[in-house]
Amino acid sequence: MRFQLTEDQRALRDGVRGLLAARFGRERLRDAVETAGAAGLDRGLWRELGAAGFFSLRLPEAAGGVGLGLPEAVLAFEEAGRVLLPGPLIATHLAAGAVPGAATGETVVTLVDSGGVVEWLEAADVVRGDETGEVAGAAVSMRSVDPLTPLHRVGDGVGDGVGDRVPSDPDSDDSDCTDVLLASLLTAAEQLGTAARVCELAVQHARTREQFGRPIGAFQAVQHLCAGMLVRTEVARAAVYAAAVTADPADIAAARLLADEAAVRGARDCVQVYGGMGFTWESDVHLYLKRAWVRARRPGSLTECEELLAAELLAELR
């Protein structure tokens, strides 16, 4: 079986990339960093994403959505990860069929995850918490390593999040996949986009930065770093794309593990290629590393994925 992108999928990917390049390029990224917090969420861009169908990709056409599937959503979120697009993208996407205005970008939706942590709480119009839709207890601001992901902890630190909810379209191919698994897969897609972008940045820098009269890319140590980044990215890409097709919990767990590793290790290696420049505030590389760290702590992270895969393997042995 060949898992090649169709012409329509490539057009979707290129369209999302073009939209984000025009509306959230490097200059806008740096502006967002300077206005971090609720003010850093561009409502105009959010509505533009809604109009382009970003949040309603998986919503049936009869409900006003685009009517596509999980593979197309993964492609869109991969592009968001490439540019470090801020905001509760996944929560709003998953709420498109349940919260009025979420599909069009008029409503910003966030959620309480299984650890009681909320991203972008102050910027959100709707916070999905327990079954009543309310969030119990006061919210306490947390110090986030990523300037573009404000964090709060609510209640006693234990939230229901989206773990027991299912996609809004019961007729979709991924109807057996809970929202928490979908959120984990879309997080993996964002991590994949970040991994691909830092690999590109490292290679570009290695080609142009010179030491001892030669581009640093001519040195074997740098070549090994870049090659390792590329291998991890492409392995993660294969896993993420396959999980988007199967929507199998074990496949999603494997994809999340590989994508988290590709993003975090890739960003760290990119900093290494940049040398001292990679640690400076003026460089964008540290922003990719910090976002990868924050995403990696979301539900469906390392320990949870390892436990799920271990349980699958043990079940096969019995």
Rank of each mutant, 00 (worst) to 15 (best):
L258W: 03
Y288V: 09
G276P: 14
E282Q: 14
V285P: 03
E261W: 08
A247P: 03
Y288S: 13
Y274Q: 05
M229R: 05
Y241V: 05
V235C: 13
V271W: 04
A263Y: 00
G266N: 01
A221R: 07
G275K: 02
M277V: 15
A263E: 02
A239D: 10
V273L: 00
K290E: 13
V245E: 08
V231S: 11
L230M: 11
L289D: 02
A267W: 07
V240F: 05
I252P: 03
A242Q: 13
R256M: 06
W293T: 11
V245D: 09
A239H: 11
A259F: 03
G278V: 10
G278H: 10
W293C: 05
E261C: 13
F279R: 09
V222Q: 02
K290S: 13
A243E: 03
H286S: 14
G275C: 02
A259M: 05
A236T: 00
D284V: 15
C226N: 07
D248A: 13
C226F: 01
A221I: 05
D269C: 09
A247N: 10
C226K: 01
A227S: 09
I252Q: 08
L230R: 09
D251M: 08
F279L: 05
L230G: 07
V235Y: 11
V231E: 09
A255W: 02
A244Q: 04
T246Q: 05
R291L: 03
D251L: 03
V285D: 06
M277I: 15
R291P: 10
A221F: 07
V271T: 04
D284N: 14
F279Y: 11
W293H: 12
V245G: 11
E282I: 15
Q223A: 01
F279V: 04
R268N: 11
V231P: 04
L230F: 10
V271Y: 02
V273M: 01
W281R: 12
R265H: 15
A292C: 09
D269A: 07
D260K: 08
C226V: 06
D269W: 10
A253R: 04
A243Y: 01
W293N: 11
M229V: 00
A292Y: 08
A263S: 03
L258D: 11
P249G: 15
V222F: 06
P249A: 15
H224L: 14
I252E: 05
V235L: 13
A263I: 00
K290H: 15
K290F: 14
L257P: 00
A263V: 00
S283H: 11
L230D: 09
D251R: 08
E261M: 13
G276L: 09
L258A: 14
A254W: 06
P249W: 15
Y288F: 11
V240T: 07
A259Y: 02
R256K: 14
D269I: 06
Y241T: 13
H224S: 12
R256E: 06
K290R: 15
T280C: 12
Q220M: 08
R237F: 06
R268W: 10
A221P: 08
G275L: 01
A262Y: 00
E282P: 10
A262D: 01
A250G: 11
E282A: 14
